[in-house]
Design a protein around this nucleic acid. Structure first.
Lengths: 205, 205
DNA sequence: CCTACCGATCGGTAGG
DNA sequence: CCTACCGATCGGTAGG
């Protein structure tokens, strides 16, 4: 019993560390997450923090995994019931821009911040980030190809070009809001996504 | 004579420090630029490096100024002779995506990297970055408004929405290339820019 | 521009 | 999970 309680408590502690790390990283990047800072914020010792992960790199990978999971839950899961093709594609655009509008992290979208922090580096974190975003790109591409096959999008649609543009527009919401105070950025992004897809824009957002 | 030589040499040294800092920052962000690292790379003492700036924050501001100047020279200056309105606007889109394709920094576009690093923070560097990008946005907006007034763009064009979309697409080139190896990203961005503007895409790029 | 140095903090380990 | 500690590095200063 005491043993089981300890294991559960340890998992709770680990989850709390990862949540705290993701919050900090959304503002200052993953390099801004230091073990000493986490220890202070969580009122633990440094060894208590790092003991759950071994190295800082493992902590970074766990943090990325947590944020990616939240992204999936908030962006992809809500649209899984939609009809494949344009219907689901537009639903993704909506849930995605809505997520960028309120990403649930104090510094805005974690994935956006970390993407620009790690794209130019090498190593396991870069690779994990690339693998995760590659997965999402594949889902997008599949819906685009389904929509083209169904005649819902123009036959000369370039799936790679559209995937790139949708991603860039979604990610761009973050700095527009935080650097320029553009509260309309999510609506702007959604409208631009429709233009890129070549379908009529929604009447309002 | 010796005095003048010294002043010129000091300015050269300062410029070399800033260039080196910008190169590092394009890969690892401005927080990755440490005084000790600059000293090692330039084979100077730490005090010799920081003496030119006083504080690390002043060094960061000087580095940002340098990168912004290079951006202006490479993106804006080449199009200053173009006719105001759609002609110049499309020329900007071309020089901008060309710059993102080959930004002249080892880690890709400095401005893109630093934007996502600093958008969620506060302080002088955040403010300087916001002021610089705000200036560029104003130029873009002016060209869009001129094009609308001349009937070259649709009358219901939302300048703010278009400015946001063009910026997001240009900035998105960086991670697409470095995270996914998308060598076509500049061409994709240019095509999406045309879609957002509602004008025919160029035949090839 | 240098050497020599400051206190603070970094990631991480030993031992319990 | 803790205390106590390691060598390395941080930004910056004193004095020349």
């Amino acid at each position: 019993m005491a043993g089981r309680r300890s294991v559960a408590a340890a998992l709770d502690t680990r989850a709390a560390i990862v949540r705290c790390a993701a919050d900090i990283a959304s503002v200052e990047g993953m390099e801004g997450v230091t073990i000493g800072r986490l220890a202070a914020e969580l009122e633990m010792s440094k060894s208590g923090v790092i003991g759950h992960f071994g190295t800082k790199e493992q902590l970074q990978l766990a943090t990325l995994e947590y944020a990616a999971d939240r992204f999936r839950v908030r962006v992809w899961d809500p649209v899984s019931h939609r009809r494949p093709g344009l219907d689901r594609l537009l639903a993704i655009c909506e849930s995605w821009t809505r997520h960028e509008d309120d990403p649930g992290f104090p510094g805005g979208c974690f994935i956006a911040a970390v993407t620009f922090e790690w794209d130019g580096r090498t190593g396991p974190v870069h690779d994990a980030l690339a693998a995760t975003t590659k997965l999402w790109r594949r889902v997008l591409r599949r819906e685009i190809e389904t929509a083209v096959a169904a005649g819902e999008l123009a036959a000369d649609t370039d799936p790679g070009q559209v995937v790139f543009a949708l991603e860039a527009l979604a990610v761009g919401v973050n700095p527009a809001r935080q650097l320029h105070g553009d509260d309309l950025a999510p609506a702007w992004a959604l409208r631009a996504m429709h233009a890129v897809l070549g379908v009529p824009a929604p009447s309002s957002t």
